[in-house]
Computed example of a mutant assay.
Amino acid sequence: MTPSIRTSLLALTCLACLGVAPGGIRARSQQEEGRPPQDRVLSMFMQAKLDHSKDVLEGLTIGDFEQIVRGAEALRQLAENELWRVNPDITYTRYTEEFIRLTEALEEEGREKNIDGATLNYVNLTINCVNCHKFVRDRRVTFREPETLRR
Rank of each mutant, 00 (worst) to 15 (best):
N114K: 09
F135T: 10
C132M: 12
R35H: 07
G59S: 08
A27F: 03
L12M: 09
K54V: 12
G34K: 02
R85Y: 11
L9C: 02
W84P: 02
R76Q: 10
V86K: 05
T119W: 03
S53A: 02
S8P: 03
T126V: 05
S43P: 01
E108C: 01
Q67Y: 00
E112K: 15
N121C: 13
R85V: 04
W84L: 04
Y122A: 14
R144F: 06
Q31M: 08
V141E: 14
I5F: 15
R70M: 05
S8V: 02
I62K: 11
L125A: 08
N131R: 11
L15F: 15
A72F: 04
H133S: 03
K54R: 06
A105Y: 02
A105D: 11
P22A: 14
D89T: 01
T119Q: 12
L78E: 12
E80H: 09
L42A: 09
Q30L: 10
D55M: 11
E32H: 08
I100G: 03
D64I: 02
Y122P: 06
E112D: 15
P37F: 00
S4I: 08
K134T: 11
N131Q: 12
Q31P: 03
K113Q: 13
Q38C: 09
G117Y: 14
I68G: 04
A72L: 02
R144V: 12
D89E: 07
E58D: 08
A48Q: 07
A48Y: 00
E112N: 14
D64S: 10
T2W: 13
M46R: 10
V56H: 06
A118W: 09
I5M: 15
L106W: 03
Y95V: 03
Y95G: 05
K49C: 00
T126A: 12
R6G: 01
A48R: 04
H52P: 05
V123S: 09
A105L: 14
P88S: 00
Q77W: 01
I90Y: 01
L57Q: 08
Y95M: 13
R76W: 00
A79Q: 08
R140I: 12
E108A: 04
Q77Y: 09
A79W: 05
E107L: 09
T13W: 15
A79S: 06
L106Y: 03
N87Y: 02
L57V: 11
T103W: 05
V86N: 03
Q67T: 10
L75A: 06
E108R: 02
L102V: 11
L83K: 09
L9W: 13
R151D: 11
K54T: 13
D51M: 04
L57N: 07
A27C: 02
L15C: 13
N81P: 01
E147R: 15
K49D: 06
L10E: 05
E98F: 00
C129E: 04
R137H: 15
Q67K: 14
G117S: 12
E97Q: 12
T7K: 14
T103F: 01
D89I: 00
N131W: 06
N87M: 04
E107Q: 13
I90W: 01
E80G: 05
L83R: 11
F135H: 14
Y95P: 01
D138A: 15
E32P: 06
D138L: 11
Q30E: 14
P88Y: 00
